[in-house]
Design a protein around this nucleic acid. Structure first.
Lengths: 280, 280
DNA sequence: CGCGATTTTGATCAATGTCAAAGGTGGTGG
DNA sequence: CCACCACCTTTGACATTGATCAAAATCGCG
């Protein structure tokens, strides 16, 4: 009931995430470059693996709709969620493009993906400098996300970790759009996913979420998050790497020279509000 | 006494890390591309910041010799070490090339760096597809390292974390070269650095290292690590993402098609031994 | 020889994991 | 429409890891 049915674009011209993924630099006539390159679109139900760790994988994916988790499995059986991929994510690229995948990818919701053939991909990049530039940007962003994640886990107590993750996901999930009233934001995760992302146990996540709820900071139920008190939540999250947050928008293009003043020590609360209040 | 004096290359032709850094694809005549591009070389004593978090920074660095730590500082004052940069590392690239740095970089040893001017860098990449390709590779590798690090911190107990980090650094520090007899490998870190990298306290790292020493697994003293029992150490480290380890060598080039069988479930111990025993 | 930084040790305590059991919730088939 | 089932969440008792604080020991270096 809460999951929109994923839609598949007829053509790249109508791609819902064209401005977010590798294809971003292409427009007009040049969209045919990817249009001809792409293999197909595909719809996957929730819980479907795109690939597993260790798999060879002949494809690359643009996530058109839905959420995907990127994870590793340790010998102990523990699963570590490395990142949550949101619409626009470019999934499956790694150093050794043709080696076994170092992580797995699995749909968290029903999902639509645009499929690229992996073997031909290097050629595509080689031939189109702007796509290469874009890939560099996306990759560098993944590194920052990983560093944020790393810092969150290593430096913060459970309360803060959870708060931080929810805040981050909430902002990313909105992608700059306002929140729709008091319905909150769709964060299609179980507490177990949160635990596996943060290096906690599901029961302690439950306890922690309980506390945050008690204190009137959030409501998280059925994959929907309502942030009741953004400022206090941000305080709990111990936000300080705001710069890292802020740099995540797609405006900052790496290859165009623009003097950016050091990010003002603004409050995430503000940022949240900005997105939220401007509802239509 | 334990730190080699860093050396500065006369020319790119004699660069000690040419095969490891961005410049890798260039050879012969084309080396002049970077030769003309680079700003200068620079020697920095241990403990010097290359840049601080929040700084604007007008340069990019190829690490020629020595170690550098990449870190963040949280509002709480806690420092999180994101990665240790070893010779050949390309330092300072981020999504928003001209925005404030999202992390800091500081020399751990005396260090030699090759300095690139940041403003002109996009152009360099734009004009030379092979450099772009190489940058993509380096970037993707950083993401994997970050994911390894993340997984290590989130999934493993202190003992394992420490063991894992030391093993990783040991392998990286050798860069494929054999260990020089029983002198061990130079890992120029204090226990405090290890703690800040792993999200532990310095005192608990001390305890943990003490245990590992007691058990005859390692000796770590004065920035020198001797691995006395690679196999048992690997067992303690809970090695399972060997694939991730192995993929770190520079042989796997992303843009050349080669079928790689899924990494055999080999022992890190073997890998260690291979490097070690073959001492010329 | 002495000083600052680093490492070690010990005592104590808080945060988080583990285990077990009981409620909830949504989806499915009858 | 109901009942059942799988999965998810909550709660409680208890165990353990690693943090904290403090002080002593060691080391490198001038």
């Amino acid at each position: 009931m809460s999951i929109r049915p994923p839609t598949v674009p007829i053509s790249c011209r109508e791609c819902p995430v064209q401005g977010l993924t590798v294809c971003q630099p292409l427009s007009g006539q040049r969209l045919e470059i990817v249009q001809n390159f792409k293999k197909c679109d595909r719809i996957l139900p929730a819980g479907t693996p795109l690939y597993r760790p260790g798999d060879p994988c002949g494809e690359l994916y643009n996530l058109l709709d839905g959420w995907v988790s990127l994870y590793r499995i340790l010998a102990t059986g523990r699963r570590q969620i490395l990142d949550f991929a949101l619409p626009g994510a470019f999934i499956g690229y790694q150093t050794d493009l043709f080696g076994p995948m170092l992580h797995g990818a699995e749909s968290l919701t029903d999902v639509a993906v645009c499929v690229f053939p992996r073997p031909a991909f290097p050629r595509l990049i080689e031939d189109h400098a702007d796509l290469a530039r874009r890939l560099i940007w996306l990759n560098a962003r993944d590194t920052i996300l990983a560093h944020n994640h790393l810092t969150n886990i290593a430096c913060r107590a459970a309360r803060s970790r959870v708060a931080h993750l929810l805040l981050e996901l909430c902002i990313r999930a909105r992608g700059g759009r306002p929140s729709n009233g008091d319905l909150g934001t769709e964060i299609p995760l179980t507490q177990h996913h949160i635990a596996d992302a943060l290096g906690l146990t599901n029961v302690y996540v439950s306890v922690t979420l309980g506390e945050l709820r008690q204190e009137g900071l959030i409501l998280f139920k059925n994959g929907r998050l309502q942030v009741l008190d953004p400022d206090r939540l941000a305080a709990v999250a111990g936000i300080d790497d705001e710069a890292a947050f802020l740099s995540m928008d797609h405006e900052s293009d790496d290859c165009r020279l623009h003097a950016v003043a050091p990010a003002p020590r603004s409050q995430i609360g503000d940022m949240y509000a900005r997105n939220r209040s401007s509802s239509k």
